[in-house]
Write a protein that binds this DNA or RNA. Structure first.
Lengths: 365, 365
DNA sequence: CTGAAAGCGCTTACAG
DNA sequence: CTGAAAGCGCTTACAG
């Protein structure tokens, strides 16, 4: 393995000078820098991560903690994080939080504390006190995306507003018998997001004098199949809903397919609106509330970079907009929003957008 | 931050003894070990990754290089890798290979060479000579999953056999007019896998005297939408195919939906078989050739562990089967297979399985 | 602008 | 079984 000494020897300077020339920190004459760069290039020298980390305390690595790595939402967010961090020379290490309590503990007690990273991004996680403390004790920038963690700086879509937007869209179309496919209670324990969507949704319906009875709520597991099952059940009611709001696009698509199978036309007999901005939504012409998960990841990456390299991000104007203004700017017209970041530590509000396609229309009657 | 010195002080031993007690390497009296463990626990000490790496040369970290992190296949493989490595205390760092040539170079020239990892797993990548060399020069275990890289130890499904199996299934059902949805040429440049599937497929058809004419081949982009478009086109032919083999489940599902939209019944009027084992396949009752991507990731993880910890894996009997035997054992009966690992460096053959569900049946005639 | 040297936090022969 | 000390490959005050 080629080390800094090899480069120093070839360039006929000290290792200190090599370090300065390569890192750009400190001063080196143009001629010397040239010589060092050439030598490093010739030898294919790349600084050792471990040695550099030990000396500087910086790893050029960001940890991302996710509950699942193979579900669409999380891998999409991860893609956004990677897109934001990769070009800036940061690596990403992945911490998948296991179901098993013992293994989960190990992630927070050990893996995370090895100090392999300069910052952490936690996605849609509900962390208990110990876990939160583990993260905070790292004394590193920690950004949460979603998840109810009052003690963490959180970037989150206003899920209450998402629910309100869905309700308003359906009400505006003239629907009055409106159902909801949301999270089963066990499922929601972890995420809590669906509940907020539901609350905003219900509140807006209530304001319009429309009630979401038990018969009009069907719990599901956020999969296409679960959504289809839930919709099938809802469509079996004697007084069938004319519209369904599903708390995810996959469930919404399941509902569309189930309706089709049941001979119920969409949108003539049934309107369906989802949440996410799932790539399949376009194919199914799904009306949805797009929460741009890729953008969420990019945004978290930008926050991390801002925290890690205050000067560098000041130099990059695009990133230099304060949190709230940045989200404001990208909010489209159709977007409603509730109270900003209430109850959250230094929160950032993420944009969402109602995308009206062909699964919603006025009710037939 | 609590360091090994703090623990040593509290336990009243030297740092050397702390290191030995905590790592389990070297000998420490039971009493001393107890004391050290208690001290470490009390202080919440976790060894610093950088310091430990620098001293030992081991990072307890495995790199995974993928072309896309947010596509189903790759995130599922990644999930398998994480499932295999996490419990053994390894972290995973993610290298997403960008489209952009410049950025791609940076990944292989710089990111990968920072020696942040003990081993590398490259998923479905076609690497050029320089990239391959970069990986090999790391002088670390490198395992490829799929992808045509003769110089890398590769775990791969026998895609020729996959194609043969699909063809045989459809022929056995009595189909003679059989179409294929495969990769567009540009798309296949990167992966080359689809071509092999197609070759095995065509060869088997040819052996049965059935030919795959140009009119019966439709290229697509491996998305559901692309599959639907391709199928729509195929079904427009005057002499319509009675069966379609799609080179991925997402394309196959697209074909099923397109057929439905065109009023073509599945499987009565059209049989469809895919490849992958996509989670949505079950919902759509799709007949498919399951290549178990999660298992592929686990398998790669096992190979990496075998290389990194020869003794440890010898102690775990389940992992101790030689490559070829392991795959043999897990091959199910329905599985055909061609020549093993021909032309590949120390290759391992990954199992696949024909899963017959409800989108294939004898042709109506 | 450049170099000698200390130090980052561990691990591991080497002695005892 | 245990400790003193060298060393892993960098970086960064500190001098000059």
């Amino acid at each position: 393995m080629v080390s800094i000494d090899d480069v120093a020897r070839l360039a006929q300077v000290s290792t200190a000078t090599v370090s300065r020339a390569l890192s750009g920190r400190g001063t080196v004459s143009a001629a010397t820098r040239e010589r060092v760069l050439r030598a490093a290039d010739r030898l294919g020298y790349v600084v050792s991560a471990a040695a550099s980390s030990l000396a500087t305390g910086r790893t050029r690595n960001v940890g991302v903690v996710v509950p699942h790595i193979d579900r669409w939402f999380f891998s999409t967010v991860l893609g956004g994080v990677a897109a934001g961090l990769g070009p800036r020379g940061y690596d990403i290490t992945l911490y998948a939080v296991p179901e098993d309590a013992e293994a989960r503990r190990a992630v927070f007690e050990t893996a995370v504390r090895r100090r392999r990273v300069d910052a952490m991004i936690a996605v849609s996680l509900k962390l208990d006190d110990d876990e939160t403390r583990s993260l905070l004790e790292l004394d590193l920038p920690v950004i949460a995306i979603g998840g109810p963690n009052p003690r963490l700086a959180t970037l989150a879509v206003d899920d209450d507003a998402v629910g309100r937007t869905a309700a308003r869209h359906l009400l505006d179309l003239g629907h009055r018998r409106i159902a909801h496919i949301g999270a089963a209670p066990e499922f929601d324990r972890e995420f809590r997001i669906p509940t907020q969507r539901r609350q905003g949704f219900e509140a807006t319906l209530a304001d319009a004098g429309v009630s979401l009875t038990t018969a009009l709520f069907a719990p599901a597991d956020f999969t296409l199949e679960g959504g289809a099952r839930a919709a099938t059940q809802l469509l079996r009611e004697r007084d069938r809903p004319t519209a369904i709001f599903a708390a995810s696009d996959e469930m919404a698509i399941g509902a569309v397919l189930a309706a089709r199978d049941a001979g119920v036309r969409v949108p003539e007999d049934l309107s369906v609106v989802g949440v996410d901005g799932h790539e399949l939504g376009e194919f199914f012409h799904l009306t949805t509330i797009d929460q741009r998960p890729h953008g969420q990841g990019e945004r978290a990456a930008a926050e991390v970079l801002r925290a890690l390299e205050p000067t560098a991000s000041a130099a990059a104007p695009a990133d230099d907009v304060p949190l709230s203004a940045a989200s404001e700017a990208s909010w489209s017209q159709e977007v409603g929003h509730g109270e900003r970041g209430a109850g959250r530590g230094r929160a950032g509000v993420l944009p969402f957008e109602l995308v009206v396609r062909e699964t919603t229309a006025p009710p037939a009657g």
